[in-house]
Design a binder for these strands. Structure first.
Lengths: 218, 218
DNA sequence: CATGCGCTTTTGTGATCACAGACCGGTGCC
DNA sequence: GGCACCGGTCTGTGATCACAAAAGCGCATG
């Protein structure tokens, strides 16, 4: 194996295939990939300046998570989801995320709530600026920040997989959505978090998750 | 690449890495792997008479699903789950599977119910024979057969991932469990299915999923 | 002008190899 | 006798290559 230069840099660390994997994964989750967009393993390898092997493994992991879909001939594309599939994924979110929120609630201290409020401010700014990618990223950060307190890594991983699968479609959906009221739902969630109102919290999260679905039929 | 013999056999079809992947996956899901058991990529490759490449990809996909865990140095083992992790996975099942059952219920016709009853008979036999692997396999087949009618592939895939993660631990758990009453829960589920009692069906499934958890603390 | 058809290029797949680091002995030292 | 060190071996990682099949494409034909 040829290692032309040994860079002791402060890069993310980890094997090459993981670096490629993480880069592609966040790209997909943030909606920076157009649904139906075709990708080639060699193209990915060239882009990251690695050989085919790690690129292939990254693609495999992503297809295993449903983030990418692979035709029978092996062509790799970002999946474009049918309406039923999106409804299904939203249902999963609606089932799991309130539970995660409820589990996080007793452990949520003041610093966390303030962080959530800050993130929500960022979300409002992205809405004003019509910044789709920034909105998706901040919105996910809000949810992840809350759910991390739930101490339920498997459940969080599962929800993240759903986010990942919806990623490419979400940005396409954002285009036809002028003013998402996620910030409002988040505010009521934060308020419920403050007073320890678990049913209210679960309802707010469920509403937040379900809300994006309504624009599908519209 | 050397293809020593072109076998036009009726084998499962598909690329080599997928064949290896499926074989390992069902092996793990059926609890035929001891938790903590170490595996090597070269060992897998030798066992299936393939090179390292497809073996590696199969392992990657499985680790991506949480079916295998990989240490920082790259050693591959079947994960041994903490009690909290098992509780968490069971919670996911308890959230998703009743929903799947409810979605399957309006589409469940008589032939399906009879198939479920047949599978349940098999389950009872495996209990009598103390056949752990057979029990797990039949039990999963019962649930999968029902959920396939839900027409919710993403949700089913998610639940299967959970089954996969619990696989190695399940068989170890079965050892200390004399007579699982899954068959009883399944019977009430079937009865609820017959009369179209959705709340009863969801409760029966939830009970069936949660039941296995009680023996953890015992 | 549309539509097959054959060729060229591209692409995924799997095997093989070189290398670095981890693992696991034994062996010598304290 | 216990423990640290050191060697060989094993194992994961990544690059490279050969091959088959699919995809793109131009050309000739109806």
């Amino acid at each position: 194996m040829i290692r032309p230069e040994r860079i002791p840099s402060t890069e993310p660390t980890g094997p090459t295939h993981e670096r490629v994997f993480r880069a592609l994964r966040t790209r997909i989750m943030h909606g920076e990939i157009t649904p139906g967009q075709a990708m080639t393993i060699r193209g990915i390898a060239d882009e990251f300046d690695v050989s085919m092997t790690p690129a292939r493994e990254a693609v495999r992991r992503l297809t295993a998570e449903g983030a990418l879909s692979m035709s029978s001939t092996g062509r790799v594309t970002a999946p474009l989801l049918s309406t039923e599939r999106i409804e299904e994924l939203a249902s999963i979110r609606a089932l799991l995320e309130p539970e995660l929120a409820a589990r996080a609630q007793p452990r949520a201290h003041l610093a966390l709530i303030e962080r959530l409020q800050n993130i929500n401010t960022t979300i409002e700014q992205t809405i004003v600026k019509n910044d789709a990618v920034g909105y998706i990223r901040a919105n996910l950060e809000f949810h992840r920040t809350l759910y991390l307190r739930a101490q339920a890594p498997a459940m969080l991983a599962m929800v993240e997989t759903v986010w990942l699968q919806m990623g490419p479609t979400m940005s396409a959906l954002y285009a036809r959505l002028q003013r998402p009221n996620a910030a409002g739902n988040h505010r009521t969630a934060i308020a419920a978090l403050r007073v320890g109102d678990e049913p209210g919290l679960k309802l707010a999260i469920r509403a937040d998750v379900t809300q994006g679905l309504r624009m599908l039929s519209a």
